[in-house]
């Protein structure tokens, strides 16, 4: 789908606005509660950015928030290998695989489809920042019904002026763990902020707590 530059800017701004916790319509969890998934299969994300490394960075950043929400998460590296061995190398193709085929191999309760709308360095008049914008939908694997959708964005220069222990901590961590000589990549830690923002049940309109979490309603 093609959007004009104006509506793209408008979309990004409204996503950023939403990402900052301003009031927004509450998500209707009726279908989610009916579905009660205990396991989630994260499919390799479709990457709409020009930064090829985005797919694996975001995929890796999705595991912890969903597991910590109380769901079983299928091992993403093995899942990718399985698709590769069956001739699927493109995420867009993978997203089109019929649910019955996925069910035969994985047996998951729900499938998570992620679209990376933006990933990588964004240049402004006064500098640049790593920017990650994600869109996701969760589908009941048996019925095919969409039970949740969400979006989130994050930027490496959020709160850069003060008290930004959180993002600075993550960025410092990234610097420390980078092998000397490699280019410092702020997009991966920024992805972690975006995925947590979109999915962690403490946030509004995110996933509900899954059955492995003590605060879950599904137990």
């Amino acid at each position: 789908m093609k959007f004009s530059l104006f509506s793209k800017i408008g979309l990004v701004f409204s996503i950023l606005f939403l990402g900052f916790g301003c009031s927004k319509p509450e998500f209707d969890y009726a279908k989610f509660k009916q579905s009660k998934p205990s396991s989630i299969l994260i499919l390799p994300p479709v990457n709409e950015s020009v930064e090829v490394s985005g797919e694996n960075a975001v995929l890796s950043a999705l595991v912890r928030p969903i597991a910590e929400a109380g769901y079983y998460v299928f091992p993403t590296t093995l899942v990718s290998e399985t698709f590769k061995q069956n001739g699927y190398t493109q995420s867009a193709e993978i997203h089109k695989i019929p649910l019955s085929r996925l069910d035969k191999i994985f047996g998951s309760d729900a499938i998570l489809y992620i679209n990376i709308k933006e990933y990588g360095q964004k240049y402004f008049i006064i500098g640049s920042a790593a920017t990650v914008v994600l869109e996701g939908r969760l589908v009941d694997a048996k019925t095919g019904e969409e039970i949740w959708n969400g979006l989130a964005s994050a930027s490496s220069n959020e709160n850069s002026s003060q008290n930004s222990a959180g993002i600075v901590g993550l960025l410092l961590e990234a610097v420390v763990t980078q092998v000397v000589g490699e280019v410092f990549d702020a997009s991966y830690p920024t992805s972690k902020i975006a995925t947590a923002r979109m999915l962690s049940p403490q946030n509004q309109n995110a996933l509900l707590y899954g059955p492995r979490h003590p605060q879950s309603d599904f137990r």
């Binding site: 950043a61 595991v63 912890r64 597991a67 959020e158 993002i167 947590a196």
Partner: peptide, 29 residues
Amino acid sequence: SALVLLFSLLSACADKSLYYWNGYEDQLY
């Protein structure tokens, strides 16, 4: 509100995590 969100996310992770990660998730990357 963004700060509060970040801090609550991070403190939630630190105090009440279900699992022992110790950097495993970064190793996936």
